[in-house]
Design a protein around this nucleic acid. Structure first.
Lengths: 342, 342
DNA sequence: AACGGGACTACAAACGTTTGTACTCCCGGG
DNA sequence: CCCGGGAGTACAAACGTTTGTAGTCCCGTT
């Protein structure tokens, strides 16, 4: 912990009595075979003894890399993202990379400007949580040859590696849970289909409803304007005004479910007494709501880790295939669902 | 958005028909007076036209700076921190700095290792949210000459700049609120006094109780083992077992208050019917609990911003005074407090 | 006995900046 | 007429790496 002025490669070279270039090759596992085993040992010992740590600026300058990757997300304050950031950092720090976070607040102008800043900062790669189904910004980045990985959402234009939760499976778990409890009239409070998750969850709901033999009634489906509480509340109000009967609702995410909660208390509807609600994401504090929210847990930390790994791969060999990794979610049953009373 | 291979200083020098060194001086506002006004104009124009962005690696290598600052915190997943991170980034990115986040999970070994990693990474400064009242790690960093700013918590060994909420004022707001509602028997569910916030809030409670003419009864004071839900629940249970009467409790933070909630429902005690509870921090979703939590809002984003500014100052002139900035909190009255029934 | 070549190592240039120093003008004063 | 000096600019070294190339040594083959 004492002040040590930086040890350079020259220092360890001198200590090992070799030329700096030899020391460099000895330390780099790629080039290590080029140098005699004895010398390698000497260099390694010297480096260890002196506590040598390569200067990543010099390294980056030479290799034309910044060892920084950008993470572009709507808003770090959304509880979905901190665990993802932890996953990213845990993976990337090990590889000596650094994560720089940028928030777009769902604003197109701001998104453009943060992407621009990232480019000028010369990040080595980008993790994007802001993809729309057709996204010119992403096309631009790809053309510019920037290594990319999408998380959470994907684009339909293909060719971009991504790591997401398996929305089809997840919605299936939610729906089957309700069906098993005995619900037959199940509503869906969705989200904009302009982003992949909104579309996928909608489609999954329809498809699972069919395969479970549940009636798919357009009157039972509404869409919130965004994945947030107020839009969710508005959508649920709209649903109630239609005056159709239902005993349960699947929400496109937890915040929308929260909006449904609000309207339910507002209108004196008991949850889960009169209507069961299941959310999506299992955000922190979902267990602290009243009633505790039954929801589908998506492995967010893991998504971060895998995205990091994928990005590193892409940086190292830009030719690599565009994997689309889907991680399996898990149903978390809490207090917001129960058999229908009817 | 098109692929542009990097423009270097040589390029703009060539375009402006000057030597790179002259271009460098012209672009740097510090050294600009050294060069003829006309040439400055020519260089600036060329740089603008070519879209020149200095390579920060080369710059950092020369200046012996990484333009990275570390943010060491217990856990990004704690909802207190994301807004703070946003504040930090908003301030630092403007100054071309990058924030690298490290979590300690409240583990001493891990803290040591992340600090070590930060040092080896040669960050230009550190923001610490993990200070204990006497903290050898911090002493070590100071001796090593690392620019530091503490947030949230402070150390008592002095001399380190810090940005915190004003806990004395905040606890005062909480207590006065309860007194104004008519409460006289008010309990305090505290937190470890080994960290500054724990101590300050405890002392503030005692001091405000006195000045408000409230009896300070040791039987009404317990301490949770940590700022978390389960420890809060245990502490509250202990308080109840003492079988002393009280009508309200001040909790040292929101999570501890949450623990009190849990025990209350568990033992059939109605909040706020039988006992009012006020928390501290105003964490996200505090308004979503049932009942919505009355709490003291601390300006976390602002803390981040100010910490960043302070750190930049400290980096630029290490002689600068060790300011201790205290930001004023605000009472947020929600549903967990009401006049005592008695 | 000479030579090709493998194994290893040293040399030097380069990445893109910043900055100390030296150079060239040109002007005014002695 | 010469010289000191200020203003402006160019030169070159340096930051700490990586890597292409050239050098040395020695062994085995002819």
């Amino acid at each position: 912990m004492v002040t040590q002025q930086p040890i350079t490669l020259r220092d360890v070279a001198r200590a090992a009595e070799v030329h700096p270039s030899t020391a460099s090759r000895a330390l780099n596992v790629e080039t290590r075979p080029l140098v005699n085993d004895g010398t390698v040992a000497r260099v390694l010992a010297a480096a260890e003894a002196l506590g040598y740590e390569p200067n990543s600026l010099a390294r980056g300058l030479k290799l034309n890399r910044t060892f920084q990757v950008g993470f572009v997300l709507p808003d770090l304050t959304n509880p979905l993202f901190p665990p993802m950031v932890r996953g990213l950092e845990d993976s990337l720090n090990g590889a000596k990379y650094t994560v720089v976070i940028a928030n777009t607040d769902n604003d197109a102008d701001k998104e453009r400007s943060v992407l621009d800043a990232m480019l000028r900062r010369r990040v080595d790669g980008l993790v994007l949580a802001t993809a729309r189904r057709h996204d010119p910004a992403i096309d631009g980045l790809r053309e510019a040859g920037m290594p990319l990985v999408l998380v959470n959402r994907t684009t339909e234009d293909g060719g971009v590696p991504s790591v997401t939760g398996d929305d089809h499976a997840g919605i299936g778990m939610a729906l089957r849970h309700l069906v098993e409890l005995g619900h037959r009239r199940i509503a869906y409070v969705g989200a904009p289909t302009s982003v992949s998750t909104g579309l996928a969850r909608y489609q999954a709901f329809v498809s699972w409803a069919r395969s479970e033999g549940i009636e798919v009634d357009a009157d039972l489906m509404v869409s919130a304007d965004w994945f947030q509480e107020d839009p969710g509340a508005n959508a649920f109000r709209e649903l109630l005004e239609r005056d159709v009967s239902f005993t349960a609702v699947v929400a496109a995410n937890d915040l929308i479910a929260l909006g449904c909660y609000d309207v339910a208390t507002e209108q004196g509807i008991s949850v889960p007494g009169e209507v069961s609600i299941v959310g999506y994401n299992d955000m922190p504090f979902a267990d602290k709501l009243s009633p505790p929210l039954t929801t589908v847990h998506v492995p967010v930390y893991e998504i971060g880790r895998r995205a990091a790994d994928l990005l590193l791969e892409t940086i190292d060999q830009p030719t690599s295939m565009a994997d689309a990794i889907r991680l399996r979610p898990e149903l978390i049953v809490r207090g917001s669902t129960q058999p229908p009373v009817s």
